[in-house]
Design a protein around this nucleic acid. Structure first.
Lengths: 259, 259
DNA sequence: GCAAAAGTGTTGCACCTACACCCATGG
DNA sequence: CCATGGGTGTAGGTGCAACACTTTTGC
């Protein structure tokens, strides 16, 4: 949604291109340094923050829609995306909206009473994990601003988005024990302390170095590159790499990781 | 959908009462004796079997819609229902349908080309577990017949319903280890061999009697009623009962059951 | 040589699996 | 008293958590 023309066409005729009543919202978790962040979007005209989201095109698959929405905001296109819940029960999701307005380029635009955008929406929640320094945040006619917010300092969000976020977080953490992560979050070659720190950040707890390395190596998803990383005035840690064949098998078949 | 009037009103004006493009399909698993069955529905006019399903009313919550659909077919209203996946990616779910017809009371009724029912539908999958001898199967203008089919003898189903069923089954089995079951599946008072048989049937594997009882009792979800059940020419097994307080807590907080 | 981080091995304990004997019941 | 299914205890193994010392590096 780049131009004003596109924007008005969407407001007036969006229901010809998109499925009304049904949206996708994405909890995009970003890992960087040793922090877990969530990507929040500020809509023009709505005074507050929420998760980025969008509508599904009439003939688009759900996974393509979710990928497209993510790409529009972050310009990433290879990432791990997972459906985690459908939201249609809260007060907000049962009733039609009214008096929605948008302020593209600071021209306030009040939606007509019978606008398709006033209809009730049921939302499919997806979550993603990305390395946030690789992300190129992109605003548009709807999104005034995008920020990475520390997961522990999320303000009150619009609609039912706090509930969505908490579902996403819980789901993502449970999934961590059954699905390998890291390929989209770490450099190509990484050290054991780096990947351990990733897990510690996401799970928000300290892990034992010795036990972590035993458990992770037993899965055989990563292999020693025989190189080390120079980190200055300390012993140089070994560099590891994902074994993509085994990693992809693990993505498909699941893992059991008891950390 | 009981009368012909209602039926025609639904075909012509359904999109005024229901959200188009979005449906709910239910994989209703039935336990009885020592067998796991799935409830299949035969639609009038569509030549084949599928999972029971329906549309969501404009102002209805998703859980109410799923419960309503289940009640319409089984007349049960207290049961365990769980959302497990949204289906919108398969070939069938991406394109609009055409030439749908129904045969209520054997009067063939061909839908007009622009009928709202020809639109693409995205479907939210729910699964339920019920004790099938308590179920009162109810057909209507759409459903010509409902049958319980052994889980190992499911034929090729309509649309993507085989895929749905296999997702549902996998999800339900995984959930078994994290959520207590049995309250809707067993008599009020039941014996250890009975509940063990339930687990064995659902998981499709034999479990060790001694270990099973130790693990289950440790959860403290069931309590000894100090009664026994007369089963004829054998030792009388003790009768147990769910401790509803703990059972409901376990439903909310989850359990860890390593059987 | 010292400060900081990486690497690694062992032991105890809890839990799980595997397994066998006795008990109750009705015919 | 016998056939059948119910009830229970124990020994052995596995795997996890807890824990400390040695190595590497740059200054």
């Amino acid at each position: 949604m780049k131009t004003e023309k596109e924007f008005h066409d969407f407001l007036e005729n969006g229901d010809k291109y998109y499925i009304p009543n049904l949206t996708i919202d994405c909890a995009i978790f970003g890992y960087h340094g040793k922090e877990l962040k969530i990507l929040l979007a500020k809509w023009r005209g709505l005074d507050g923050w929420g998760l980025p989201g969008g509508f599904i095109k009439k003939k688009e698959t759900l996974s393509n829609a979710a990928t497209r929405i993510l790409k529009e905001k972050t310009s990433l296109d290879k990432l791990y995306l997972k459906q985690f819940h459908v939201f249609g029960d809260s007060e907000f999701r049962r009733k039609e909206k009214e008096g929605l307005s948008f302020s593209p380029g600071n021209n306030r635009y009040l939606l007509p009473k019978n606008s398709w955008l006033h209809e009730r929406t049921i939302s499919i929640g997806y979550y993603a994990l990305v390395e946030y320094s690789q992300v190129n945040l992109m605003t548009d006619y709807f999104i005034e601003e995008l920020v990475w917010q520390d997961i522990n300092q999320v303000p009150k969000l619009l609609f039912d988005h706090n509930e969505m976020l908490s579902y996403a977080l819980r789901n993502m953490r449970i999934n961590l024990y059954h699905i390998p992560i890291g390929y989209n979050l770490l450099p190509n070659k990484f050290t054991l302390p780096e990947i351990q720190s990733l897990y510690e950040t996401i799970l928000d707890k300290k892990l034992d170095r010795r036990n972590f390395s035993k458990k992770l190596l037993k899965l055989e998803l990563i292999k020693d590159t025989k190189e080390v990383k120079k980190i200055g005035q300390h012993r140089s840690p070994k560099l590891y790499q994902f074994d993509m064949k085994k990693y992809n098998e693990a993505l498909k078949n699941g893992i059991v990781l008891a950390i």
